[in-house]
Amino acid sequence: MDRTRSTLQDVAVGLLLPAAIVLAATLPWLVAWSDLPDPVATHWDLAGDPDGHASLVLALALVAVPAIAAALVLAAVAAHTRRGRRDGVVPAGPALVGALAAGLGALFAVLSLGVVVANAGATSWQDAELPLAWALASVVALIAAGWGAAVALGPIRLGAPAAPDAPGSHAADLALRPGERAGWVGTGHARWPLATAAALAVAAIVAAVVTALFVAAVCALAGLLVLLVGAVHVSAGVQGVRVSSPVGWPRVTLPLDQIESARAIELRPMDWGGWGYRGSLHLAGRAAWVVRRGEGLELRLTDSRAFAVTVDGAADAAAVVNALLARSHQPS
């Protein structure tokens, strides 16, 4: 990353975004103060009609203070990680805190603006209507600001969690003759995908009969999802490591030139954030495809990133990857 862009990012995330949050959370109150009823409406039902209120000062404190606090945290974290980045290391913890602060700050700023807009000009709090769009806008602001800050503060690199070698995975080196090719294809299966899917199918039928079609649809969809993510296909060879669902999509490909080393680990789902596709190589520098606990293939990637997938026979897969890597590093 070149220096100008990184300075621009630092200014945007460390000064402009916090300033925008503070301004959006306070300025509207100052401008509209005389037009606001006291108490003001502070809570609305789904139809946009007010169903909760608070005194003017309390309402201001409830939305403006958290926004300002979040903005200060964000500014502090940005200054902190800027120092870190000069040394070439971006600490993951502070960057995540910064992203969270940015998201929450934006959320409260939009909520604060919503309270003022809804109450301005109303004679009493019961007349202050707030369209549902504000709720959506606040969620969008939360995600956009949090994502943007995570990118600007990063790159965040969580790295691979410590994990023991898979039992019985003696690191048997694969010595390839010149010109010889090695490939590996395998699968990982969830423990009870069919039972879980069947249970969800029964739940869907029961729900369709006794409750709502909506609930039935959710159960049926969850059942399909379990079948889809109940197994994972893994192949390793000249194309690198490719991981996909049984139907071929979604699919992740890690070319050999992005892999530094491979090994078989005893994978604990919670180390990687749970089951399914967890994390993000782009945002967090760490991702895993987890369908069960136990044997898995761990890849250390370039740029301090890490990837893992639960698969049977991971030791052979790791041996193939390492053998191909060793060959690609040899001068040809």
Binding site: R181, A182, G183, W184, V185, G186, H233, S235, A236, G237, V238, Q239, R242
Partner: peptide, 13 residues
């Protein structure tokens, strides 16, 4: 057995 397409790709055949 491994899907033919996956194996062919891994072995570059």
């Amino acid at each position: 057995l491994p899907p033919a397409r996956e194996l062919a790709e891994a072995l570059d055949v």
